[in-house]
């Protein structure tokens, strides 16, 4: 059974949510993703992206409950986490456009965006692979005498990945200050969660003695409350928590779907999934005028982000192997 103490907002450690700030983050992510998809279709972004649209409440609610010096790891569908943790949208846009001014100097792109200066230990393109990295960072933080917490995101597809379950075991044994956030958006690419997961997601954590809760992943304030409880628990050295945030992916698994159009869900189902929109849920908590003001601010931020990204230089091909080794060891060229 899920731990009822984690499910609701009523918790002694819960802080009061800043509704406007949460709305602002949700709106930022939504519009960032919409602008990024446009840039993909315009050929300005090399390859494509995994849009986070629909899942904004999870990133916004969890990151709002973190301290600035806390850490996160993200996923292939990671733009929301990176923006919610505070990365500069202009440098993020420049990164996914492959420019030198990007967060990773154009070396990472959409699936590897990182900003170690503000605790973003990288988006990770192998499903579940960041869970042990986050746990290692949490262990190291405690070794250093810090009370930092690490939050690691993964999707429902990751809960059947062996390394995630191995990590649950070690994180629980060590009471590592880590919060596992599973974004259950219903699909691992095109495979339904029900077709891929025996038992339950929360039950996997509970088998290791890790408290787990199912959370309304479309409501930023519900996510914020649950995250606050889990983070407080981790900070008190009481160990990890799993939050299963039930959400819905509005857009494609990846923008290649816009052309390939694989059939794995009906338009009616997508409409139903979109019926509880985090943007509207959080927007309804603000006065109209305030909401309009935030929307206008976000448009200006993204206008500037796109301009910055597209005006930034492309990396020099001669630097393609820069950063391969920390000590500057030079790799041989592919032709002698």
């Amino acid at each position: 059974m899920a731990d009822p103490a984690l499910s609701g907002p009523a918790s002694p450690s819960s802080q009061k949510p800043d509704s406007a700030a949460l709305y602002r983050t949700v709106r930022l992510i939504r519009r960032f993703e919409e602008r990024a998809v446009e840039l993909v279709h315009d050929g300005q972004i090399f390859g494509g992206i995994h849009p986070y649209t629909g899942q904004e409440a999870v990133a916004a609610g969890t990151c709002a409950a973190l301290r600035p010096d806390d850490l996160i790891t993200s996923t292939h569908r990671g733009h929301g986490h990176v923006l919610a943790k505070g990365a500069d949208p202009a440098r993020m846009m420049a990164e996914i456009a492959g420019r030198t001014t990007g967060l990773n100097a154009g070396r990472g792109g959409s699936m590897h965006a990182a900003d170690f200066g503000i605790g973003i230990l990288g988006a990770n393109a192998i499903v579940g692979a960041a869970a042990p990295i986050a746990t290692g960072a949490a262990w190291a933080a405690r070794c250093a005498g810090s009370d930092r917490v690490v939050m690691t995101y993964f999707g429902d597809g990751a809960v059947s990945q062996g390394v995630v379950l191995e990590t649950f075991n070690l994180a629980a044994l060590w009471r590592a200050p880590v919060v596992f956030v599973c974004e259950n958006n219903g699909f691992a690419t095109t495979t339904r969660t029900d077709d891929a997961v025996a038992g339950s997601i929360t039950g996997r954590a509970e088998a290791f003695g890790i408290p787990a809760a199912r959370v309304d992943g479309m409501d930023p304030e519900a996510v914020f409350a649950a995250a606050g409880t889990a983070i407080a628990r981790a900070r008190r050295s009481e160990g990890p928590t799993l939050l299963e945030c039930v959400t819905y992916r509005y857009d494609a698994h990846h923008t290649w779907e816009h052309a390939a159009r694989p059939r794995y869900r009906t338009p009616e189902e997508v409409d139903l999934g979109r019926s509880r929109d985090p943007l509207e849920i959080q927007g309804a908590r603000l006065p109209e005028a305030r909401r309009a003001q935030i929307d206008a601010e976000i448009e200006a931020v993204l206008e500037e982000a796109v301009r910055f990204a597209l005006d930034s230089p492309h990396p020099d091909p001669a630097t393609a192997l820069d950063y391969l080794y920390a000590d500057g060891t030079q790799a041989r060229a592919g032709v002698a």
Partner: peptide, 19 residues
């Protein structure tokens, strides 16, 4: 424990954080 994948990944995270 017999969890080579997890403890190798944990070492990566620890190494990024000063260990």
């Amino acid at each position: 424990p017999i969890s080579e994948q997890a403890f190798t990944g944990i070492a990566t995270g620890a190494a990024m954080s000063g260990m």
